Simulated scan of single mutants.
Amino acid sequence: MTTFLPLLPVREDLYVLYRGPLASCNYDCPYCPFAKRVDPPELLRADRADLERFAGWVEATTDRRLSVLFTPWGEGLTRSWYRETIVRLSHLPHVARVAIQTNLAARTGWLAGADPRVAALWATYHPGQVTRERFLARCRELLGLGIRFSVGVVGLPDHHAEAVALRAALPPEVYLWVNAAEGHVYTSAEEARWTALDPRFGDSVRPHPSLGEPCHAGETAISVLGDGTVRRCHFIKTPIGNLYDGTWRAALQPRPCTNGLCDCHIGYVHLKPLELRDVYADGLLERIPAVWPQPATRP
């Protein structure tokens, strides 16, 4: 007599980009509208409560294979509740990845309590806000802890020399990305210089026409606000449901993009014609390509 084991349920993948009300930051980068913003205590309490509620939703939503990226307007890792939540979610069996965008100013020792197979960081180096050696010391701490991370810079002309030095100091397995600076038009020579540092700079250097294009956003990727409002992505403001009343489930469906252009990595990475999910694979949320060519010579 043959005994058949019960089939385990197939968990569908869902990428969740979460952004609570937190907007404070310890840096004052001139290209950022939230630089040195200070949140009042009541907003911080609200942000903490919202994040706790969201973490509870992640724990309870076991029928999906979830990947979570925190994209705060400010710096989240200076707040204990983001650190604690990343550790907490990293140990859930149905969470494939939990990552956060960070300036890497906060201490990293807390990551020793996280599952290094799940927790990851998307770190940005801001010359003028932190010394290169201090930033590199944080990177070395992450390497010692076995935490996956990428590092990057904004592609401003004044940042190029620091970016070159950073690339030279980092081990080759650490991916360094470059974001095109908003409003800056790159000459072909400038584009070539930055591409020598980041072979995928071409994805960022010019906006992607997106109107009517198919996108994973709203189908297998969603944007969530602190109150649970669900949008297709951060850049299309129309709500499609709410996380906490269950309406997000029926809202998930293929949709064409309604914006004319998409010029931010966390948006265009989901545009289907670009096939960037294949490029990044398991490193999608922390911005690490599965394979990337190393520069043959230092720029």
Rank of each mutant, 00 (worst) to 15 (best):
R132A: 06
P157I: 09
H159Q: 06
A217W: 01
Y27T: 06
H159F: 06
G76I: 03
D50R: 13
L285C: 10
A99Q: 06
V230G: 10
V205M: 03
Y27I: 10
G228Q: 08
A290F: 01
Y18L: 13
D227P: 09
L44N: 07
R37I: 08
P289A: 11
N259W: 00
E191Y: 02
P293G: 05
W73R: 15
I288R: 15
Y15F: 11
G152I: 04
Q294H: 14
V224T: 08
V130W: 02
G260S: 06
P127V: 10
K36A: 15
G267F: 04
P293Q: 02
G20F: 03
I100L: 12
T78S: 12
R65D: 10
S223I: 00
A46C: 05
L176Y: 04
P254A: 15
P172F: 02
I266R: 13
T102W: 02
W122C: 07
W122E: 14
R287G: 00
H184T: 06
A46E: 15
N179R: 10
Y280N: 05
L225M: 13
R117W: 01
D158G: 01
E219F: 05
L77H: 07
A281Q: 12
T238W: 01
P72Y: 08
T102Q: 09
A123C: 14
S90K: 03
M1Q: 04
L145I: 06
P254W: 12
P6S: 08
Q253G: 13
A123N: 08
A180L: 05
C257A: 08
L243H: 06
P21Q: 13
R64N: 02
L276W: 05
Y15A: 14
L121W: 07
A35W: 03
S188N: 06
R11D: 04
R107C: 01
R88D: 09
H234Y: 08
E219V: 00
N179G: 05
P40N: 11
A49N: 08
T85Y: 03
F201D: 07
V118W: 05
P299R: 15
G144Q: 11
T297I: 01
S80G: 12
G128Q: 10
T85A: 11
Y31R: 08
W248A: 09
E12Q: 15
E286G: 01
A99L: 00
T238Q: 15
L284V: 01
R277Q: 14
A251P: 05
L8H: 10
E162F: 02
R206Y: 01
R79G: 03
P199K: 10
T108M: 15
T62L: 00
W122T: 10
A105P: 00
G146V: 07
R148C: 11
H265N: 07
L121M: 11
G144V: 05
R148F: 04
T247F: 02
A296K: 13
D13L: 11
R132P: 00
L14F: 04
V118F: 03
D115L: 04
L7Q: 14
E219D: 15
A112P: 00
T3C: 08
E12G: 11
H184W: 08
R193G: 02
Y31L: 03
L121V: 02
P199L: 07
D278N: 09
